[in-house]
Design a protein around this nucleic acid. Sequence first.
DNA 1: GGTTATTACGATGGACGTAATGATC
DNA 2: GATCATTACGTCCATCGTAATAACC
Lengths: 89, 89
Amino acid sequence: MDDRELRAFTSIAEFGRMDLAAKELGYSQPALSYQIRRLESALGAALLTRGPTGVELTIAGQLILPTARATLVLIEGMKQTAGVADRRR
Amino acid sequence: MDDRELRAFTSIAEFGRMDLAAKELGYSQPALSYQIRRLESALGAALLTRGPTGVELTIAGQLILPTARATLVLIEGMKQTAGVADRRR
DNA sequence: GGTTATTACGATGGACGTAATGATC
DNA sequence: GATCATTACGTCCATCGTAATAACC
């Protein structure tokens, strides 16, 4: 599992649409679609129901969303901590 | 950043050696070395000091270790949650 | 010389963009 | 037919193992 996939998921959850999330993150639409499929595969569950008007979160998607956000916060924290520690070496 | 890299880091931190961690995780020694370099690159900081007797954690490595473990716990939680939710769909 | 980590290199699979297709309104 | 997502396909980079090298006890 990659943090880019988590970012893709949280962004899609906010927009309710893949195309906007793709634009926001700087990916093409197929690339983002691929990332979500990768994440679903890693988690063993469908996260979104797709449609021509956008996407909706499945139950599983709704349940993991807060943890996905928390995970991204931890990762950001590690980056900051590591960067600061390295600079003071 | 990938969760395999975090697992590699925590395992190396526990053993204090890369070869044992590699064996535990089912990777070759070069593969694990590569994963750590990737993680260091993603974090922008050196995590280990390498030597012929094993490795030691840098300050940055010591600081992020608890957060790395916490991140892995969250990821495991997402897998469990998603799996259970998907099964009850 | 034995132990541990890195470098070199070739092979396989992953991740991406563009273009084309599918589906729904 | 416009909109949003997926599939197809080609390309480039990531990741791995094996083999060779480097460094320290």
